[in-house]
Design a protein around this nucleic acid. Structure first.
Length: 367
DNA sequence: TAAGCGTGGCC
DNA sequence: TGGCCAAGCTT
């Protein structure tokens, strides 16, 4: 691994800072979280933007801030409503961690987001990137905020060939940023690097001819910008077979289940479902046995009305979906509910189960 | 360190 | 169309 000192040797730091920040001042996009530097709003936006596109985040951010405009309002909010506000955004542990961290700020920091690396980085869900982003953008502290954009942009500008998929490489880039960040305007420096990655120095086909820091770019001068950054591929995902059902009782109410508080889609609601295997008898038999043990419910299953595939980042669900009628009473608990269809909108569902409901309604309307 | 953790858009 | 990608964090 190279040393960051060697990497920035002969690099015109002052001119680079000036060119980058001037460009950002002129060309930055108008985004809702840039209206002010309220540390809480900066924080919320940074958490939402983790692994998520700007265009996707914008409506979620506006709605979330409208519902929970302050540290106090989010600290006191019902978790069910918080999850509902995050529904469809993915990586749901982000928002459970955010609320837990906001509660800590409310209780232990007088409702003020801490402004030191030591304090803020210890909050739940606040890692190295978010620490640097909030410190630099909200408080003007010259800390690195190294995300995928920054690694791509700097790997090209400085011709760095380390594998950016490795955790160790992020730490190298943090060292590099520490050695070139503007002490006068760390906010615009960090945001400028990210903005450049988002609209000019894109993953494929970077617009080098429009780049404000082209003169500083070793990758461009060497004609290797398309080979950078180096990023190893991750393993392909597994496929899981699931059987699920929309089960209604004689009152027309539907059975829903709350997922466990840890792991995939934690604390979200779903229609009853179980993983089925080749060996353990027919798919339908396995599902009926599951209903008996998990819900103490008997049901009359019709034929599957849909096959839904849902692709996650690390796995694929193939879901056979049955329509069915409950033939016994179901005891309701904190994780098992019988609700009217019109009430489903009060519960947060993963997209896969939103799709189950959508197809179910389409089939019902035709019948 | 590697794997788990969502979703939608893009070509 | 399936793989890749997008302002990462936790364990």
């Amino acid at each position: 691994m190279k040393q960051s000192k060697d990497i920035v040797n002969h690099f015109n730091i002052n001119q680079f800072q000036h060119d980058l920040i001037s460009w950002f001042e002129k060309e930055q996009r108008t985004l809702p979280w840039r209206a002010d530097q309220d540390p809480y709003k900066v924080w919320v936006s940074e958490v939402m933007l983790q692994q998520t596109r700007v265009d996707t985040v914008i409506p979620y951010f506006n709605n979330f801030i409208q519902q929970f405009p302050s540290i106090e309002s989010l600290a006191n909010a019902d978790e069910e409503k918080v999850l509902k506000a995050w529904e469809g955004l993915g990586y749901y542990s982000r928002v459970r961690n955010l609320q837990a961290a906001v509660k800590e700020v409310h209780e232990n920091y007088g409702g003020k987001v801490p402004n030191t690396r030591e304090e803020i980085s210890q909050l739940k869900g606040v890692g190295p990137y978010t620490t640097g982003a909030v410190l630099s953008i909200a408080y003007g502290v010259p800390e690195p905020a190294v995300d995928g954009n920054v690694m791509r942009v700097l790997s090209r500008i400085l011709s760095i060939w380390e594998d950016i998929a490795k955790p160790k490489t992020r730490r190298l880039f943090e060292e590099v940023v520490r050695s070139i960040i503007s002490k006068e305007n760390p906010s615009f420096f960090n945001q400028g690097l990210m903005e450049l990655g988002a609209i000019v120095c894109t993953p494929t086909s970077p617009s080098c001819l429009l780049c404000p820091v082209r003169e500083h770019c070793r990758g461009f001068h060497e004609g290797v910008q398309d080979q950078l950054p180096v990023k190893s591929k991750k393993k392909s995902s597994k496929t899981v077979q699931l059987t699920a059902s929309v089960l209604t009782n004689e009152d027309g109410k539907v059975l829903i289940h709350k997922r466990p508080g840890t792991g995939l889609l934690a604390n979200l609601w779903e229609f009853p479902n179980v993983e089925v295997t080749e060996e353990a008898g027919s798919e339908q038999e396995q599902f009926l046995a599951y209903l008996q043990t998990h819900y103490r419910a008997k049901a009359d299953l019709q034929k599957p009305f849909a096959t839904i595939q849902h692709v996650f980042s690390h796995l694929v669900w193939n879901i056979q979906v049955y329509r069915g009628t409950l033939e016994s009473e179901v005891e309701q608990t904190s994780t098992i509910k019988l609700v009217d269809f019109t009430e489903l909108e009060n519960y947060a569902f993963p997209v896969s189960h939103q799709n189950i409901l959508k197809v179910y309604k389409e089939v019902e309307s035709k019948a």
